[in-house]
Nucleic acid binder design. Structure first.
Lengths: 115, 115
DNA sequence: CTCTGCGTTCTGCTGGTAGCAGAACGCCCC
DNA sequence: GGGGCGTTCTGCTACCAGCAGAACGCAGAG
């Protein structure tokens, strides 16, 4: 009974965190400031800051507004996020089996309850 | 100058709609029932139904729980959704004819203001 | 040292809605 | 007719999205 639980951080990042990271990256690549994007998207600057830091859960309309203000489409955004998530996970669990989604993750409910 | 335009706005599907579609597709591919996934994810069956139909905005924890219950990772989910979104948009702009009863007024910024 | 620009974070506040239970309903197949 | 499956209606409560206003840290520039 060597492995009780992986007390290491559940490697899977949450959606809002990955999204925020990608949004920030995209904005900085464009050389925009928070206030620029916020104005264009029609939202407050504090709120955009929290979205980018993965603190708040933006609605689908918000996501569309920010993406539109950044000049990217949803599909591109998703692909970019997927890439980031992949890199993050590989970085963390370097020497485990490579991508095999068949494994039954032991704690789907646990994640929901944990947060 | 009057830069009014925007009447060419394709109805880019909202995040929650695309997500729901993909979740349902994944579940059906596995031959699971709503109640199976709901139980495994620890959520109610009505709510899962609404998520799959894109009617409610699930939190990141919910997404993780459902994805876990389906045995898929976030990255795979995102890529699948991106593909669906792409296909949808192509399908729409190719011939606008098919049964599209819902005249979705979904613009990025416009939606934020409307909401 | 001060000033300015940029982002972050704190304190509120309000409306909306996530998420649930319970039940009813339509549909299909036995 | 009955049972499995999904949908939808009516609530209901608790939580949080999303805002304004202001303050703060931290750079660099003068």
């Amino acid at each position: 009974m060597a492995e009780i639980l992986d007390f290491t951080r559940e490697p899977e990042p949450l959606w809002r965190e990955a999204l925020g990271r990608k949004l920030r990256e995209t904005r900085e690549e464009r050389g925009d400031r928070l206030v620029d994007v916020a104005e264009r998207a029609g939202i407050s600057v504090q709120y955009l800051s929290e979205i980018e830091r993965g603190r708040k859960e933006p609605s689908s309309e918000m996501i569309a507004a920010v993406a539109g203000a950044l000049g990217v489409e949803l599909a591109d955004l998703l692909i970019g996020i997927a890439g980031q998530v992949r890199n993050l996970r590989v970085q963390q669990s370097r020497h485990f089996h490579t991508s095999r989604p068949m494994g039954r993750p032991s704690g789907p409910v646990a994640m929901a309850l944990a947060a």
